[in-house]
Design a binder for these strands. Structure first.
Lengths: 181, 181
DNA sequence: GTCTATATAGGGATAGAC
DNA sequence: GTCTATCCCTATATAGAC
């Protein structure tokens, strides 16, 4: 099995269990590879596995969430396309945010720089599209923050309530949040 | 040392490390009690410690965040008092939300019922104060959800960006979120 | 590349002295 | 109530055969 096929199978374990909660045994089961085989691919052990997942996800976001923003369509259409990507990425709120999960405990010590960079990228991208529609920079920055707050907060609520409606309602608001002034 | 003094010392460990990330050794250090002494108080082990913290926090919220809502002052004053309690509770966003942290991995299996109940209490309380000001029930419910989303989302953002301003800006919006229609 | 078998450390938890 | 000492298990990680 090529490494590119292994990484996606690691994702749900880290997402749902967190870094410390995820055991190599679980990761082994999830991939179908025995522990020693996992260590063959990831000589740095669990830490390297998490790092690989982090990079994989950054890439996925780039392609599925940010890419729709680079077309020539009207801003609102592009935003709605992005929201569709977000809904897919978080499975309507049923999958926790990797970034949020990895910002706890030991994982935060290990990965804080990458996490911060990833979030900054999100915020900058969202802010840019707001500015594009004529919103002043400072306002655009705050709108981007509010949009991320809405996404992350909705994920927490859904995790506890299991009510995906809350997530859909929240995501539907993203465009107006970003474009408000 | 009486048990009531022990529990508060457990809180920061669980909050920052999560349930699985928190080790009994860490809890021991944080309390200043050796492991065996901890087990003397909490015969159910780590699980019972987390449970005790959960109850302690529910109680704290009741007294410091919900109580200010029960006075005879104008609704807006009461909401601002509540926001002050929230800011204190989360140390301006520098302390993660216990509820959010405990809704991951194994902890979620163990405590999901209590977590759900706690969140429901939050939402009901917020919804009630919105209704009090004449907002129709369904709208009040959604406003309460939006308020909780804002709190939880801001906590995630601050955890990664270390920018407490974001938290203050978010909290300041809570009253208008709750009372909007 | 994938496995079985194993090493080593640290986890949660208990026994029993004081 | 608090401790030291210890048990057992699981966690991460490695060695080496195929």
């Amino acid at each position: 099995m090529p490494k590119e096929e292994v990484i996606p199978k690691l994702i749900p374990v880290f997402r749902h269990c967190g870094y410390e909660g995820a055991t190599v045994s679980q990761l082994s089961k999830a991939t179908g590879l025995k522990k020693a085989s996992l260590y063959h691919y990831f000589q740095g052990g669990k830490e390297e596995m998490a790092k690989a997942v982090l990079e994989y996800i950054s890439h996925w976001i780039e392609e599925h969430i940010f890419a729709p923003l680079q077309t020539e369509k009207p801003a609102l259409d592009r935003l709605n396309a992005m929201c569709a990507g977000i809904d897919e990425f978080y499975k309507s709120g049923q999958d926790p945010c990797f970034l949020a999960v990895m910002s706890l405990g030991e994982a935060d010590n290990l990965f804080h720089q990458q996490l911060e960079q990833s979030l900054k990228k999100w915020l900058d991208t969202l802010s840019a599209i707001a500015e594009e529609t004529g919103i002043p920079p400072q306002q655009a920055k705050e709108n981007a923050e509010d949009a991320m707050i809405t996404i992350q907060g909705a994920l927490v609520l859904v995790r506890v309530t299991k009510d995906t409606q809350v997530f859909h309602r929240a995501i539907a608001k993203i465009p107006e949040i970003l474009l408000s002034n």
